[in-house]
Structures are given as C-alpha cells and as structure tokens.
Design a protein around this nucleic acid. Structure first.
Lengths: 340, 340
DNA sequence: CTGTTAGCGCATTCAG
DNA sequence: CTGAATGCGCTAACAG
C-alpha cells in the first residue's frame, strides 16, 4: 500500500541509497539520475517513513510544548496561545512538528517530559516557566533533556530562555501615568509567586517609576490577581471601594483588564474620563471591546517564535544558547487623561 | 547513553523479547521474571524508543489536529481552543500524542496532511470542517487517511464526525425570546458559507421558531458575522441603527457577543433592561465580563473530546464510526425581559 | 511461560 | 557519482 524507498529504487533502476540521497538533497547525484528518481517518487507518491528515518538519524524532528498547569489554564489563557502560535510557526518553518504536552497536575510534568524526551518522541521541549520548575530544570540538565524556557526558570539562568521584562513595562506604564498627572495609581499585578523568585516583577518597575517621579507609593494600592477575569474584577472593586481616592489603575494582563472594565461599568466609571486606565497585553478581546485603551504590549508571539527558533538551534548545534530578554512597549491611546 | 532493550535484557538475565513483553504488559510473563525486568528497567531508566516501536508496529500513537486557516485564526478563537482542549484530553487518556498542524494557507492543507499521514508522523487526524474541505475529504478517502471531522464535511456524511446542531440552538433560543414576548429579534448568525452547504444553520432554527410562534421574520433583521468581535460590533450597530424597532438580539458566538455588548454600551443600552439579548457560546470571557447573560451553550470541549476518542477508535479498530450530533442548550439568566 | 530469527524502512559505513 | 552490506531498537512469528 505505502511504497518504500526500494519501490522507488526499482522503478528508477537505481539503488536505494541513491534514492536516499535524492530525498536528502545530497549534491552527489547526477542531474539525470535525480530526475529519474524524482519522477519515480512522484509516480509512487512516496513519502519517507518518519519513524524509520528518525530511528536511523536519531532525531524525530519534533518539539514538545509543555505547559505544566492542566488543560483548563492552558486552553483559556490567550497569552499562552500567542506564545504557542509563535512557537508553532518557528518550528514549522524549520521542518519541525509541535507536540502538545499538557500534564494535568504539576507532579506529572516531569513524568510527561521524561516520556516525551527519553522515548525520543521529541528532540527537545519548550516549557513554560512557572514557580516550581527550577527543580525540574535540574533534572533536565542531569538527563540532558534539551529545553528552552519561556521566561527564566531560576535566578541567574544564563542560557536557553526567552524572557520578557516585566519590570520594564511596569515602569514605563507607571511613568506615563505619573507624567500625565496621576498621583494615586492602583496596580493590579501578576500573582505573587507565579514566576521564579529572582525575576523582577511589574511591581518593581512600578515602584521605580514612582521613585523617579518623587511620588510616594501606597502599598495598599498594590494588589495581585491570578490572571483571571474574575480576579481582575475583584481587585478593581477592592481598589475602587477603598477610601483612598484612586486616580487610575494599571492592570498587567488582558483578562484582568476585562474584569476591571466590568467593575468600571458597574460603578459608572468611564476610563479616560473618570479614571485613568492602562490595560495589559493589548489582545484583540479587550482592544476590540474597548477601543482607545492605552495598553502594555508584550511581544508574546515573538517570544514563542524565538523560543521555537532557539530550541531548534540548540537541537541542531548541541550547544546551549544565551538567553534573551524582550521588551514590551506602551501603546498610548485615550484611556489616560492629560492634566498637565 | 540511552539504554536499549538489550541492556535491560542483559541486566535482568532474560531475552529482549521478555523485556518487550513486560513493557507491553503481556500476561505471559512469570511474576518473578517481571519483577526482575522491572527492576532492571528502573535501574537503567529505560524508555522504549518510540520510533523503533512505531516502525515495528506501524503506529506512531499520535494524532494530528489540523486547522486549515492559519495561525491567526486558530490561535485566537476560544471555541477552537475548547475543542483542542477536549481532543487533547481524550488523546492523552488513550496514550496518544497530539501534533498540531496549522497550514498557513488553505492550499497547504492537503500538503500538510499528506506529509503528516503518509510519512506516518501521525496515525490519523482531527480536522476542522470548513467550507472547501469536502474536496480534501475525497482525497483522504482515496488515500485512506484516517480522519474525524469537527462538524460535517459534506452533505450526507455518515461517518467520522462529531457535529453540533446549530439549527437546534437557533430554534430554542429564538423560541425562548419569542415566548418571553420579543417580537422583532435581530439575529447575528455564523458566516454564510463557513460550513458545508448541507449543514443546517442557526438561521433555519431561528426561522422555524418564528413559524412555530406565528411571528413573521423580517429578513433585514438577519445578518451574518465572521466570528470576530469587530463583526459583532458592526452587525449590532447595523441592527440597532436600522429604523425597525428592534426588541432583542440573538448572537451565536461569544466574540461577536462581546462586540454586540460594545455597541450596547456605546448606545447606552443595558441588556435585559433596554433590550433582550442572548449571547453565544457562554465562554468565560463574556460570562465573567457580563454576568447574567442568557446564553447558548454549545458543548465544544465535549465535541473535541469525542473527536479524540473517535479517531483513536477508528485507528485501533480500522472501522469507520457513525457520526454523532451534539445538542447545545440555553442557559437562562437575566438578559431577556419577561413581558408576559 | 520463554527464547530465536527475522525484518519494519531507512541511512550510514565503506567500497567501487 | 553509485551501490552492497549492515544495523538503528524493537517486536511479530514461530518455535520450544
């Protein structure tokens, strides 16, 4: 039913090895021979068996994308999909397939990774760095599992990661709001222990911006959400109902920004009119729902793309690659009032 | 570096075949032998090579998920994630990996599928049925590519699909609105030529409900969106700005519902107070952003799950499986007024 | 219950 | 430039 390299060799009246050379683009084939072989391949609709090839070449040409927090989280966070999208594209361009691995509990992560890598289903993995992965990474290094992490896995990590600079966006967003005249800004930040402890948080940049502007930070105006819409809603209500007069809110993620907008709506507040607001992520959902929101744009798709490119480099070269840190930017629209 | 089945056999002082039996859970192994082999496996940290196994057994234990419309669409539609999530879980439970295939253009779909299936990277595929796939399906059948489609690919398809009944939800949603006293309902429906031509649309159910209630349908109140937030916004504005007095809006998808809510907000309309509204999909985004919306809930995660289960059945049995149609339901909350 | 033989489909020697 | 032999790691088919 499926034809093999020998069928092609027979039809083209050459040896199997010659066919092999043709399909692997070896230059050591006479043009005429190549033509004959190509014709036979087309005629038989021959596709080299990836398992046989992988067995021989010890490479599966595929990469696992591992997200250690269960389907519900993965499949609902748009940021994760942006990263996955970028990774998929980089891999596809390089001839690698993307295998999704979504362990249902954190305990299963290492098991899943062992399976995928040790049985050579994949040549390497891209993994989402969250609190707790540092212990896994030690295992990976011991086991020579090739990985690239999205964000850093442990303090001082030098290689094999693509990170985004949270402190930077916190700083530029807060500075902008302060420059426009806001004085009491509420911050809805990422969860307290989501990333590894060494990673600079949005809050650090937020505080730095205040320091730079000579404005005091009120600790009670800093609250941490869990990236969900609900938590954005609750954090915003908490800030808005506190008896401190809030000037504006800076919210670091898109779903949480949506929750904040719900709180605004319920309280009859219009962002850019009654209160300053900087939203996170700048994803289509919020952008299209509330046009004109000034937002933080983090290059998540690019992060995924670079991670895909990096893991392939690593796999093919065998050499670890220095990590990279990406900078987000502030997209200024109309939700922060100018009162200078 | 990696140990093989022979290393294990040596250490356990048995033959390779016996090791093979142990790792494949054959009952034909003495308990004591099994114990010895297991110990050797653990000691050597042995994992059978998936390529070698696949080559021998002619099965890769993986399934492709093919979405023929490019990354941008795929990675942004929450309904797609829900389906992907369900499919992933079903496959994981059955020991199959999920390989993502996202051809960047419709023309590349067949090529991508050929590659994945003919070179045996995957044992079968789950594919998203959209207009145009019917020609692909003929190819698949000719090539014996095993597939299960999400929704039907061509009129009269009997096997290998998991569909959802659009007409049904259109009918129950419209009937409910009519029962509550709405008389001029705008419908924001799915794109006109998104699914195969034979598939009953929401509009058909919508019309049937009107027929059942003896209420005339005004054709100008039926508009088709493209599943995006923007199109929901534009469709809603079109309906609301028409000089027909609109009672309510029925919107079949969640992102379009979000766009509709933006239109409501801009016009100062409160759903459930100033206008009736039934939203689509009932995804977290809209549900958490606007609590209290009466919504259509389509079991998309279940659809993906069943598709994953079905493709594995098909792969393992070699027999085509009769298709299934899933019914959505109406989740009644507070966005439709009762005026009886 | 266990072992031997052979070969899945391809690519790597090493010769021509 | 081309081909013959050999084996990647595993498991069917057959013995015992």
């Amino acid at each position: 039913m499926h034809s093999t390299i020998y069928d092609v060799a027979n039809k083209a009246a050459v040896s199997a090895k010659t066919v092999s050379r043709v399909i692997n683009n070896s230059p050591l084939v006479a043009p005429e021979t190549r033509r004959k072989v190509m014709a036979a391949i087309a005629e038989l609709d021959f596709h080299p068996d990836s398992a046989a090839k992988g067995l021989r070449q010890r490479s599966r040409r595929s990469v696992g994308l591992v997200i250690p927090y269960g389907s519900d989280f993965v499949f609902q966070d748009p940021g994760m999909w942006a990263q996955a999208s970028g990774a998929h594209r980089a891999l596809a361009e390089r001839g690698y397939d993307l295998v999704l691995a979504v362990p249902q509990t954190p305990e299963l992560v290492l098991h899943e990774l062992s399976r995928l890598t040790k049985n050579r289903t994949v040549d390497g993995v891209i993994l989402y760095a969250m609190e707790g992965v540092d212990v896994l990474i030690k295992e990976f290094e011991r086991l020579h599992i090739r990985y690239v992490s999205l964000s850093t896995c442990y303090r001082g990590q030098k290689n094999n990661f693509i990170d985004t600079d949270s402190a930077h966006v916190g700083r530029i967003a807060a500075r902008y709001m302060l420059d426009q005249g806001a004085r009491r800004i509420g911050l809805i930040r990422e969860p307290m222990r989501f990333f590894e402890a060494g990673k600079a948080s949005t809050e650090q940049g937020f505080r730095q911006a205040h320091l730079d502007s000579g404005v005091d930070v009120d600790d009670s105006l800093i609250v941490a959400g869990d990236y969900s819409i609900e938590s954005g809603y609750e954090c915003a209500l908490k800030l808005l109902h506190s008896n401190h007069a809030i000037d504006g809110i800076l919210c670091v993620s898109d779903p949480m920004a949506l929750g904040t907008l719900r709180a605004f709506r319920e309280l009859g507040l219009e962002p850019g009119v009654d209160i300053d607001f900087v939203a996170g992520d700048d994803f289509p959902t919020t952008r299209a729902m509330w046009p004109g929101l000034t937002s933080i744009r983090t290059p998540l798709t690019e992060q995924g793309y670079l991670a895909g490119a990096m893991i392939v480099d690593y796999i093919q070269s065998g050499k670890e690659i220095p990590g990279r840190v990406l900078q987000g930017e502030l997209i200024v629209r109309q939700s922060v009032r100018c009162r200078k």
